[in-house]
């Protein structure tokens, strides 16, 4: 249904601005894939020719593949841990009369706002104080701080979107807490869980600052990219790698946002 409302008449100026805005938003990013196919060693116009050789070169670098494997391992475990923690925390925050609910939520969401460098150096301090060696594990610990707010922000609306009576009805029909969780809670919030896994995976996969401070000798992909940025001759390969990372991230996030929101809207419509 289209609302044809007095205040909703199309505004030509705003439409033009919207197009301009979207162009500004995406244009800089799009130069990365554009130049990744350029034959020249330098990023400059005019583009002299088209090639796939940077991708070819990329795939022959074992360091890239190792960094990719590290990133997937870190992001995979961070996604699972923060989503599981997020499910419990979101359920508690929505369903129970928890004392100090507001401050607790604020505390959990804090990392969305606080500059990541602060968390990075603070964690680095603790880790070295306790003489824990820097590794993929310390990176993952840092990523959980950053991913937990996203997991909870994705899952909270799912719990708010359905009636607590669903769980009561299941208990009333004879199921204990464990079965209520698996037979009712999980199926209903499943889109939220999937969305949270996809989003937190991407956030961890692409995260740089925490990894920069907390990483040891094992590199993640963003750390590898950072290292290559100091070598101008390496730019074309970085562009090829960046193109693949962006493509992968865009697909995951698009799916995550789509699944997360669509289910929520469906649930709301039902009532």
């Amino acid at each position: 249904m289209i609302r044809r409302h007095h205040f909703h008449r199309p505004n030509r100026g705003l439409q033009v601005y919207a197009v301009f805005f979207m162009a500004l938003l995406y244009a800089p990013i799009m130069f990365i894939p554009l130049f990744s196919f350029s034959d020249g060693l330098y990023i400059r116009f005019p583009i002299e020719g088209w090639t796939l050789r940077w991708y070819d070169e990329l795939l022959q670098r074992t360091a890239v593949l190792r960094a990719l494997e590290n990133s997937v391992r870190v992001a995979g475990s961070v996604a699972v841990v923060s989503t599981v923690l997020g499910v419990f925390a979101a359920k508690a925050l929505v369903r129970y009369r928890v004392p100090g609910k507001g401050p607790i939520l604020g505390f959990i969401l804090l990392p969305l706002v606080v500059p990541p460098i602060i968390f990075g150096v603070a964690l680095l301090l603790m880790v070295s104080w306790l003489q824990i060696p820097l590794s993929l594990y310390t990176i993952a610990a840092g990523h959980i701080i950053i991913c937990l707010p996203f997991a909870i922000a994705t899952l909270l609306p799912r719990f708010e979107g359905y009636d607590a009576a669903m769980e009561e009805a299941a208990a009333d029909l004879g199921e204990n807490g464990w079965w209520v969780f698996w037979r009712v809670t999980v199926p209903i919030i499943l889109p939220g869980i999937v969305a949270s896994l996809l989003l937190t995976f991407t956030v961890s996969f692409d995260e740089f600052v925490m990894a920069f401070f907390l990483g040891g000798t094992d590199l993640t992909l963003p750390l590898y990219v950072w290292g290559q940025l100091r070598i101008p001759r390496a730019f074309p390969v970085v562009l090829a790698l960046g193109t693949l990372i962006l493509l992968f991230s865009f697909v995951l996030v698009f799916l995550g946002l789509k699944i997360g929101r669509r289910g929520a809207i469906k649930l709301v419509d039902r009532d």
Partner: peptide, 20 residues
């Protein structure tokens, strides 16, 4: 979704894009 999409993805690459 399309407006927020870039912000979920690599900060490092988005900054690098401006260098380009």
């Amino acid at each position: 979704i399309i407006i927020t999409l870039p912000f979920w993805t690599s900060y490092l690459l988005r900054v690098f894009a401006w260098r380009v």
